[in-house]
Design a protein around this nucleic acid. Structure first.
Length: 219
DNA sequence: CGCCGGATTTAA
DNA sequence: TAAATCCGGCGA
């Protein structure tokens, strides 16, 4: 890796930005693993300078090591003894930050997803929830640190589009400081039904009209 | 070394 | 509303 910190071909420049900037740029992008293709509809930013809600709050540990790595890698962790959670590592190397993929829509491989999710049929809630997303993609600890821009295995495809961006406080971080709990670091695609607690989110980055510029990927 | 609790999901 | 179910991080 001679080009540390510099985006490679096909890599979104936005991932080098602070997590709250990088996060909304991931909306609409695709996650691919085998025949399964998901379109990201909801994300949350973690880390940056100081964030009491981040796994990096206690410093570098074995579990969160991937958060310190270069942008564009996966950070997988096990939660509640039950679920795996997928994050996209962002920011410059050495600054722990990541974006939690909270929800997505199935674009391809529905049969595989239904099987993995043990769901009877498709619906807006099929992959709405971070544990569901990882399960649908068939992820576990072996994907921790995986390069999302390397061909084969789990991949992030920057191509995609999303509707107007919604933003609001992150979910499930009652242990964090009130200031960090209040940060509007949860983002979602306003045009998607695959979004949890949508009523807690409000339009952002638009100068008056929905679909306005501002949610564009800088590229 | 033992305890506490979690970036959740599901079923009752 | 509560159980499932494991491991990380902290304090002793």
């Amino acid at each position: 890796m001679g080009s540390a910190g510099r985006p490679r071909k096909g890599e979104s420049v936005d991932l080098i930005a602070p997590p709250d900037i990088a996060a909304p740029s991931l909306l609409g992008q695709l996650l691919v693993n085998g025949d399964v293709v998901l379109r990201i509809t909801e994300v949350e930013a973690y880390g940056g300078a100081e964030d009491s809600a981040s796994h990096a709050r206690h410093g570098l540990t074995r579990r969160n090591a991937a958060m310190w790595g270069p942008a564009g890698r996966a950070y997988l962790y096990f939660c509640y003894g039950v679920h795996w959670m997928l994050n996209v590592v962002t920011g410059p190397q050495g600054v722990p930050s990541a974006v939690l993929i909270r929800a997505a829509e199935v674009v391809g491989g529905l049969e595989t997803v239904l099987e993995r999710r043990k769901a009877p049929g498709a619906g807006p809630g099929l992959c709405a929830g971070p544990g569901k997303v990882a399960q649908a993609l068939g992820l576990d600890r072996t994907f921790d640190g995986h390069d999302l821009f390397a061909p084969g295995g789990l991949e992030l495809r920057p191509r995609g589009f999303a509707g107007p961006t919604l933003a609001g406080p992150r979910l499930g971080i009652g242990f964090a400081t009130p200031e960090d709990q209040a940060r509007p670091w949860r983002f979602a695609d306003g045009a998607s039904r695959a979004v949890l607690r949508k009523a807690l989110l409000a339009p952002i980055g638009m100068a008056g009209t929905p679909g306005a510029p501002g949610s564009d990927r800088a590229r």
